[in-house]
Structures are given as structure tokens and as C-alpha cells.
Design a protein around this nucleic acid. Structure first.
Lengths: 225, 225
DNA sequence: CTACACAAGATTGTTAACAATCACAACTGT
DNA sequence: ACAGTTGTGATTGTTAACAATCTTGTGTAG
């Protein structure tokens, strides 16, 4: 089977969520997706099944597919799971990080800094979440990496749903401090910083759902695609 | 949309894996599944997409769907992830378990004991894995519970793939000792026992793939379905 | 103005048919 | 006997069409 259309749809939806272009509760109409991705409905329906298995989308019988809307309890569960996973990932990273790994992380933090200064908010959001995903890639355990990917995506939905104003970014210096601890091989400090960072992120989210129903075509066909 | 056929297929496959009736590498033909579950191919293809998203099945273009075959590295990653997840779950359980929870766990351990004595191996296997899933249900965090479900399922595949002889069950008394620690609210002991138990299970698996290609109809239409 | 009923269009659910690809058996040549 | 080629049937990939359900707009009554 050719999975190209399915992969394009799944990847496009996940990316739009990561960049906060696609919000919780938005309806993903089958025909809309067919037109956006130029494919047959069978591909769309399969991609939606995949997205549902990944907790990205909720399929409602006879009504269609909607981006998931996490409850407050689910939000708390996601952040607890994140702390569990990211602490293990961090431990793996600090134990095996090479000089190249550290340089890559520093480079990424620098890019975050530049994106903030250039007021490119979408880029800053993407890079902010991406920092955590790079740690997952480096930890040497693909299972943990996959879980982290799912948790970061679900965090994105939670953030876009429960942030009254603009989505909060990770603290300005917190990523840099995390990289410092990795570079120094200081496991205890690293764990503290990761825990502090994630609790800080969780506290920065107020429980206020925002409402939005933007144009699907604009979102999924973002500039640069 | 009516998800009944899709759910039946996904549930049936997962259950067959948990009971070691369905082994790593087995081909799941679309037409076979249509006949077994009396549904149209569209349902089968969607269920297979779901199973792939859950890492249960690997879809190969133009060749079909095969039960996943974890590599040795993946096996190690799964067990490391399991230790990370199950330790957090255990901590949650010991902090919030009620008297009813403890009674439920003791009842379950007793059932495991009876299944072992009655030589009902399939039941013993199912109950053995189920003990861990009950802890997940009790931990009050559905995200962790979902991850645990996936990890236990993948462990089942690893066990059925890498065990040269009969699938090892969890140690005879280890579950009972875990329940004791929960009953006594002894968090430190519980964590030790969980860690020891999981490392014991991991060590009991030899890296010897077994080969089998049994009849799909017999497996998915097990007695009692 | 509000509430209810009905109809029409939109959307999702389902199926069957055809196209494309692969696996395997049979045949041929060395 | 073994290796290579070809053909056939099986299986997967894809599409379109029809059925079923839902949503929305319009009309009517109070």
C-alpha cells in the first residue's frame, strides 16, 4: 500500500497542532481533507483512524472527526506522565550525551533565542516544543521517544485550549540551564531543572478554554508548505 | 460511523497477543479478517491502520499486515520504559489505594494461583499480564494507564518471540509481595519489588526467536469468543 | 418573536468493482 | 539437480457510487 497520502495527512495535522495553528475541538471534515491533500476519501478515513489511535482526534459516529479536547483532569495526567517520562529521558541523555549532542542542543537554544527576538511567534512556539523532542531523540530509547512525542503533542492541545491569552513559551533561560547541566554531566541538577521546568510550564496554564473555529484550509496549508 | 467491526478486530488481535495465541511475525490477511469478523474490507483496513498506530502491526506496502516483530534493542527499550512507567504507577497506587483496591488485587493474585494449579496455561498467562494492568487502572492517571497497556502488549510480543520454550510467567510469589507492600503503604519496599520484578521478567527472556505460522482462524476465533 | 416541523443539502458509512502488485508454481535451459 | 524465467492466481491499493444520518434553513403556528 502507498501510505503517502495518509502520512501527509497525519503529519500535517500533527504539525499544525504543534504550531498551535490547529486548536482543540476543530472539525476535520473528510471532504475538506480530500481537497486539501488531493486524495481519495479512503485515505482520509484511514488517516483519521490513525489520528484517533494517537489521541489526536476524536471520531464521533455520523458526525465526523474533531481535534481532541482534553479535560482538565486529562491535562493534569498528561503533565504527570510527562514528568515521569522526561525525567527518565533526561537521565539517559546526561549519561550518554556526546560533545556533538551538547553542541546540537546549544545551537537549538540559540535558534529559540533568535526566533523570540525576531517576533516570529510561530517559529518560537515550534522551536520551544522541539527542544524537548530533541532530548527524546538523544535518549537512546525509541519507545520513550515515541511516548514523549505523543505527550508533547497533547500538551500543545492543552496549552492552546487552556491558555486565555497567547500560548506560553517555555521559560527564557530554562532550556539553556538544562543544557548546561547536561554539558557538566550533573545528573542531580539536571533532574531538578527538568522537574522545575515542567512544573513551571504546567502552572503557566490557566483553565480557561478558548473558542476558535478558523478556516481549515488556511491552517493546514500554512505558508511554506 | 459505526466502529463495531473495527473495535472487534482491534480488540480481538490485542487479546490474542495478550494470550500468546498470536505470535510476532504472523500475517494478518485482509480477506482472512473479513471472513473472520464478517465485515467489509474497508473496516479491516481501518482497523489495521489503528493497530499500526499502536505498534501492534507493521504494514508493508503491497505485501500486507504482519504482527510486529520487536528487535532485541526494542525489547530492551520496552522494558526500560516499563520500569519508568510502572514505578510511577506504583507510587500513585500506594499513595491512594483503598481497602477495596487491595482486596481486588489479592483476589486477582488468588485467581492467578488457581489458574496455575489447574494447568490452564492460557488463563494463567492472561491473568499474569492482567495484574500489571489492574495496577494501571488504579493509579488514577489514564495517560499512564494507556502507556502501560501498550507496553504490556508489546512485552507479550517480545516474550512470545524471544522465549525458546514456554512463555515465562511472572514469578510465583512476586505479585503477592507487591500487593503486601501496597497494603502496608510501604512505598520504598514497593518500588524495590516492582523494579526487581520487572528486571526478573526481563532476564527470564532469552534472545531466541521462535518460528510459527499457525492458522489465523483458529487463533482469532478462540474457544469462548 | 419564539418554538416546532419539515425538507433539502451536506456529510459520513458502506460496498463493490477494477487496477496494480506480489507470491508461488510450473516450465525451460544448463 | 539447480537456477532463471514466465504465467497465473491471490492479495493489496484505489476509486466511485449508493445508503444512511445529520445539520441547517425555511415555513408555519402561537
Amino acid at each position: 500500500m502507498s501510505q503517502a497520502p495518509e502520512q501527509a495527512i497525519v503529519g500535517g495535522v500533527l504539525e499544525a497542532i504543534a504550531e498551535h495553528r490547529l486548536k482543540a475541538g476543530v472539525k476535520l471534515g473528510e471532504q475538506d481533507l480530500c481537497e486539501i491533500y488531493h486524495c481519495n476519501r479512503a485515505h482520509v478515513r484511514r488517516a483519521l483512524a490513525t489520528l484517533e489511535a494517537q489521541k489526536v482526534v476524536k471520531l464521533e459516529p455520523n458526525r465526523g472527526a474533531f481535534i481532541a479536547t482534553p479535560t482538565p483532569e486529562e491535562a493534569r495526567n498528561v503533565f504527570q506522565a510527562r514528568r515521569a517520562i522526561e525525567l527518565v529521558i533526561a537521565r539517559n541523555v546526561v549519561r550518554q550525551a556526546s560533545a556533538e549532542d551538547v553542541a546540537r542542543l546549544r545551537e537549538h537554544v540559540e535558534q529559540e533565542h533568535l526566533a523570540r527576538q525576531s517576533s516570529d511567534r510561530r517559529d518560537a512556539i515550534r522551536l520551544s516544543g522541539r527542544f524537548h523532542l530533541i532530548l527524546g531523540e538523544m535518549c537512546g530509547n525509541e519507545v520513550l521517544d515515541e511516548f514523549l512525542n505523543e505527550l508533547v503533542m497533547r500538551s500543545s492541545l492543552i496549552i492552546s485550549m487552556y491558555s486565555a491569552s497567547q500560548a506560553p513559551l517555555c521559560g527564557d533561560e530554562e532550556h539553556a540551564l538544562i543544557v548546561d547541566a547536561i554539558a557538566q554531566g550533573d545528573e542531580a541538577t539536571l533532574m531538578e531543572r527538568i522537574e522545575h521546568h515542567l512544573r513551571h510550564l504546567e502552572r503557566s496554564i490557566a483553565i480557561e478554554p478558548t473558542n476558535a473555529s478558523p478556516d481549515l484550509k488556511d491552517i493546514l496549508q500554512a505558508p511554506g508548505r
